[in-house]
Amino acid sequence: MFAIRHSGAAAPNALVKAQPARRGEGNVAWLERTGVGEGVLLLGGSQLTGVRLRVAQSRLRSDISPSHWSFAGLISQGVVTTSPLDAIGDPGEFAAHNGVSRVDAPMFDDPDRYPNIAVLVFTAQYAPVLDALDQIESGRAVLDVPALTVAWLAALWAVDELDAPLRAGRGMPGAAVVALAHAIAGLQLTPGLESTATCPEAIWQAARWWADFYRESATVALRAGATQFTGHAQPAVPAGMYAIRSRLVEPLQTSPREVTST
């Protein structure tokens, strides 16, 4: 299955707001201006790898335009935890850490290379999410990041069809790490997906269009109290900021459904 559900929301989540980049502003400066210290970092790349990854997620958008996003990571204290397809490094070390690596945010500072940026927050308590990273890094039983990486490299290099991994239910490595860390902390990051093929576009749509779902999640968690969800983070309606400098294609102004995947 390779499809996304429509949330039924009539308007996008007002807590995810545009914060246009200033002239010449780098991504690090933009991030500092948001005041967000911990959350999900989405980036949209302009180079070949980034563009191909953005196109690969087109099917998840109602207007089938390329996604704004090619990368997802978990940012905390200026360090981004992810599994970057364009910086695998030593293969042995990569596998030993289940593909999880940490990079400094300045790596993504260049707005020409990463013209699109968003930071999204799904809970007020990121400690359980960050704690979960150790669990992901230490074993491949729940999430086999090298297997996802192999599938996506094959797609990037045109060995397989570009959208073959998503069709096969294989999420993009960085997004899968981010989603699993949230899941271990009790937070569902991709309610719109009919599969577990997590990707940055699915995370983006969750934040933009699934506010009601998260509102209900927060209510359920509060009602259950600490008993059932000990160690979990308290869900919240997603909040965040974004700057879109590159759309690849302009949206179809006449399509009534286009808005659902902006």
Partner: peptide, 17 residues
């Protein structure tokens, strides 16, 4: 079976393959 459990979004429940 569906490719994920639960097959529809359930608040406070993670999705698994």
């Amino acid at each position: 079976p569906p490719s994920a459990f639960p097959a529809r979004p359930v608040p406070c429940a993670p999705t698994s393959a």
